[in-house]
Simulated assay, not measured.
Amino acid sequence: MTTDAFRALYEQLRDGTPRSPDDRRGALGHLTPERVVAAAAEVRSGRTVSLAAEIDTRPAPDNPEPAEHRMTGPAAADIGADGLHFARDRFAMNVHGDADSHLDALCHVLFDGELYNGVPADSVTSEGAGSLSLDVVRDGIVGRGVLLDIPRLRGLPWLEPDDHVTAADLAAAEAAQGVRTGPGDLLLVRVGHRRRRRELGAWNAARTRAGLHPTAMQFLAERQVAVLGSDGNNDTAPSTVAEIAFPVHVLAIHAMGLHLMDYLEFAELALACECEGRWSFLCAVAPLRLPGATGSPVNPIAVL
């Protein structure tokens, strides 16, 4: 995709997204209280499924700076001793890596000197983001989730790195699965990244991975999707646009105001959907309460 074509698509999506000058919630505006109430009707069996991968503390080709988890208690003298003692631990993470499940806030993408909706980029400082931070979703995100399984559509275990999901793929997956994405939905797109990693081992996902083609974002705009998530990064690598490393991130977050979730885990969810014969469900996302943050580790829960 040429840079000029990308710029034209960016402007189309930005200008076609209704918003007020002071809007800071972005596409979450599609997720109205009425749609949250309607999403509760998706619960039928009461089965709950985690959509997060286990946090890995071991270095890997796609995880050179893994999360750190260490025990800070109990002390050796406390083990087996009488009285009250506590087990304690400490955790640290590089949130926007290529391995752990996380949510991107709307302040995550700086493009042409601005954040989403014209907010100046210098509102992000070493002290944190002064606007569009994780605080926007401090009350969580709850709505109707829809899983579109692209490897299932193509009869494959996974998409190979550098393959693309198109708008036509998304529409075909809807038809094959008997589901339709609608306004306010949390759209989850499976590319099989996690299964490939499990079966073939980790690789440098920063250099090569499957994801959405930038033009697929037109599908999301037309359907008025509220949140986009994937079991990969959402963006392909190498990028389809020579001068833009993460075109889907730019279009989704910066042009459309879509919160993104990267590197989720859909294996159990896909099995549950197959078993129940439906691909929509109640989905609840609860990020950390960390003011000024650009993202958060996240463990979304699907309730079928």
Rank of each mutant, 00 (worst) to 15 (best):
residue 5 A to I: 03
residue 5 A to R: 09
residue 11 E to N: 08
residue 12 Q to F: 00
residue 16 G to E: 00
residue 39 A to R: 08
residue 44 R to N: 12
residue 45 S to N: 14
residue 48 T to I: 11
residue 49 V to D: 10
residue 52 A to M: 12
residue 60 A to K: 15
residue 67 A to N: 13
residue 71 M to K: 10
residue 79 I to A: 00
residue 90 R to V: 15
residue 98 D to N: 14
residue 104 D to N: 14
residue 105 A to W: 11
residue 108 H to D: 09
residue 109 V to H: 00
residue 112 D to M: 02
residue 121 A to Y: 01
residue 130 G to L: 14
residue 131 S to M: 11
residue 135 D to Q: 15
residue 146 V to M: 03
residue 150 I to P: 07
residue 152 R to D: 14
residue 157 P to T: 02
residue 158 W to N: 07
residue 158 W to T: 10
residue 165 V to N: 09
residue 170 L to S: 03
residue 175 A to T: 12
residue 184 G to I: 06
residue 185 D to I: 00
residue 193 H to F: 09
residue 197 R to P: 02
residue 200 L to G: 05
residue 202 A to E: 13
residue 208 T to A: 15
residue 215 T to K: 03
residue 224 Q to C: 01
residue 224 Q to F: 02
residue 227 V to P: 01
residue 236 T to S: 14
residue 243 E to G: 06
residue 245 A to C: 00
residue 247 P to E: 11
residue 250 V to G: 03
residue 254 H to I: 04
residue 255 A to K: 03
residue 256 M to L: 08
residue 257 G to D: 08
residue 261 M to W: 07
residue 262 D to V: 10
residue 264 L to E: 15
residue 266 F to V: 13
residue 273 C to H: 14
residue 275 C to E: 10
residue 278 R to Y: 09
residue 283 C to R: 10
residue 290 L to M: 11
residue 293 A to Q: 01
residue 295 G to P: 08
residue 295 G to H: 05
residue 303 V to A: 12
